[in-house]
Design a protein around this nucleic acid. Structure first.
Lengths: 243, 243
DNA sequence: GAGTGGTCTAGACCACGAG
DNA sequence: TCGTGGTCTAGACCACTCA
């Protein structure tokens, strides 16, 4: 029942958790490890894939396999009107934003409840922490809701979200659909992760009190270093609808 | 940039979406497909893994690869006090429940905020729809909150959740942490999915108005056929705490 | 038992990163 | 250039399903 990859993964896992291999250290090369465990390279790579999925090991092409620092987990906080995944703690993450004008098409027309070719603005946000990118968000807003084109990239960070929050009727509903899947080749390249590692994908639809969809966001987070957190406070006396 | 597996996956995907291969149909055997595309079996299997991850194809050991019916998606509804993942629509899913008494240990002590070895009850819930199992939930409740042992399995469905809902102070907070990861070998065997397919894992912590943790649930859903849905209604005039 | 997928082998060749 | 990981090959053998 226990396949070889799991036996090897278990062995390496205990070596990591007991500190025999320390965080940040490089593992021996895959060829060396394959020789040590007397398995072929694909099998050894499968064992490493298990550890990657657990967030214990990070592969870097051309350099080697590294033991991950266990702390580095991102938390996407749901239910809000945040532009992007935020770490709960440090705000010291750089974020790059690229703005694109485009017509509505495909799923977006359904989600935003607009007609095809309706003008949209896409904000493509990539946040980095330290060296590696770690979240990708594509945010779509009907163009008439977006701020004027003038201010340029730098103003977006405080600009768009503040305006959407304050100049518009408050949001009535935020709906977030979360799924676990593999990244598209495009997403894998952008996030610099293996396309064999699962990602957490969040599709967020925000509706204002008038029932208009004011924002659709597609957030992709690497599964090995991110969680999504949803909290619901039930006021006392508030009977939740049981349906 | 386009690897062979993706080229093959793209070809099969269009054959499926254009209806040349219909839902429910069996694909040719992997050996036949490998011969047709002139690749080795591992490469062809990688191509099928891509489609599996997209939820288009389901492998059944000893039988073949089948085109999935696109409708069959489960939705886990967050924020509630539901025992398990429910389909939004049909209640025609069988669920088996196994009850186990066990002492608190590991993460559970932290999550439930009880001391180690504190008595717990575990409800292991497996829900089936049609032929295949499609969700696994392990629910942990402090033993003094659980109903008397008497009623037996059959009463649990309406029993536990009704009691927890009504006999106790109402829940004050439900916190759900979602992650994308690979299943443990145990989970893969229970859900009858490949251990190479990502799952959506939800850890739900429910707290009552007295601040006591009354339930911890670990829900595992196959990523290729499940989403989690979280909805937040913001009352007009209700300024959400901006952190 | 025949046919299927699941795992593994022992290499090969290509792409990336660093000196 | 050299060592690294990324992808692929052409088989082998085992486990599962069904007749």
């Amino acid at each position: 029942m226990a396949s070889r990859r799991h036996i090897i993964a278990d062995d390496l896992r205990t070596q990591i958790s007991t500190g025999r291999i320390k965080a940040g250290e490089r593992l021996p090369s895959e060829a060396q490890l394959a020789a040590r465990y007397a398995v072929s390279t694909p099998t050894l790579r499968n064992a490493l894939a298990v550890l990657q999925g657990e967030g214990l090991v990070e592969k870097i092409h051309g350099r080697g396999n590294f033991v991950r620092h266990p702390v580095r987990r991102i938390t996407y906080v749901g239910g809000g009107r945040r532009p992007d995944a935020d770490t709960a703690t440090d705000a010291a993450l750089r974020m790059s934003v690229r703005t694109t004008h485009l017509p509505a098409r495909g799923d977006l027309t359904t989600l935003l409840r607009v007609s095809a070719s309706s003008p949209l603005i896409e904000f493509l946000c990539i946040s980095h922490a330290e060296t590696s990118p770690h979240s990708l968000a594509r945010i779509y807003v009907p163009r008439d809701l977006a701020p004027a084109d003038g201010p340029g990239e730098s103003a977006i960070r405080q600009g768009v979200w503040a305006r959407l929050s304050e100049l518009r009727p408050p949001l009535a509903e935020v709906e977030e659909r979360v799924s676990a899947r593999f990244p598209t080749p495009r997403e894998a390249a952008t996030l610099r992760i293996s396309s064999a590692l699962p990602v957490l994908a969040v599709t967020r639809v925000a509706t204002d009190t008038a029932g208009r969809v004011v924002e659709v966001a597609r957030v992709v987070l690497p599964g090995d270093r991110a969680d999504a957190l949803f909290t619901r406070h039930t006021m006392s006396g508030d009977r939740r609808t049981e349906e």
